[in-house]
Design a protein around this nucleic acid. Structure first.
Length: 269
DNA sequence: ATGACTATAGGATATAGA
């Protein structure tokens, strides 16, 4: 079972890219961020014809998240991150797909910092940590993936020098990331590729893609129950090399759910 | 310190992204 996260940077602008990628890589589940479209602008019919059921949460101009499932309809669990009823930004969706709980998130960028946007980022991160605590300990297999807008360490960026003041590298952002992982989550990419640089984002400036000057900010986290199923993880970098590509590349895990032990209540003494 | 580039909304520029 292949599950991917992909910040499409505009689902309407990138629809052809999205369809080519789905066709070629055949992910079973695809979590999308930055739809930049209203609910009514989401190409649900086209995706259905491509074989994917979908849940989506749009917003005018910015944000927006979706969960696609190949050959099935994701079952919605929640469409808001708890903790702030005044927050109207479309950044979180959670669904059940084939016995798996999948959270799709688009964590605020936070620039410029310091300032209100950075405060919003940290507040949103605190809400995520609070919500993720129960998911981390869940007896269900849970995957929490998306654009976290955090470069976990200096090893996750081509060169931190010109990014030192960026919200993505701030000690506060990284401390939140560490607290999240300390709940027991496995960072799939880093777990399977401990010694090599892996990037998921290359900005449009200064030929950063051509120079492979990237950042690792799209992450897939597995809870304890799911971690034993992890078989492979990677980045579909070819998508970033396409004409008029998103600045992010799809990032994925391959899971072998049949390898998970049965829930305790079903096990014989 | 700034800007490089790409997107949306709208119909010129302003704002956001990371």
């Amino acid at each position: 079972m292949k599950i991917a996260t992909f910040n499409v940077n505009g689902v309407k602008t990138r629809l052809a890219h999205l369809l080519r990628w789905l066709e070629k890589e055949q992910p079973d589940v695809a979590c999308l961020q930055e739809l930049k479209a209203l609910d009514e602008g989401f190409p649900a019919e086209t995706l259905r014809e491509a074989g994917y059921g979908a849940l989506w949460k749009g917003q005018r101009s910015w944000n927006g998240v979706a969960i696609l499932a190949r050959g099935s309809q994701p079952v919605e669990i929640r469409r808001v991150l708890p903790g702030d009823e005044a927050d109207d930004q479309s950044r979180y969706l959670e669904a059940a797909v084939d016995g798996l709980v999948v959270g799709c998130l688009y964590l605020p960028n936070g620039n410029p910092q310091p300032g209100p946007k950075f405060a919003y980022k940290l507040a949103w991160f605190e809400r995520l940590i609070a919500h993720a605590a129960a998911l981390a300990d869940s007896e269900h297999p849970v995957l929490l993936c998306g654009d976290y807008n955090v470069v976990p360490t200096d090893f996750d960026i081509y060169n931190p020098r010109s990014w030192r003041k960026d919200a993505l590298l701030q000690p506060e952002s990284r401390a939140c990331w560490e607290r999240l992982l300390a709940q027991g989550w496995t960072d799939a990419i880093r777990h399977l590729h401990p010694d090599e640089p892996v990037y998921t984002f290359w900005d449009y400036f200064r030929q950063h893609w051509q120079r492979n000057a990237g950042l690792r900010i799209d992450h897939l986290l597995l809870n304890r129950r799911l971690a034993p199923a992890l078989r492979a993880a990677g980045v579909d970098t070819w998508v970033r090399g396409e004409e008029k590509a998103s600045d992010h590349a799809p990032t994925w895990v391959e899971l072998e759910l049949s390898r998970l032990s049965k829930p305790r209540r079903n096990r014989r003494a």
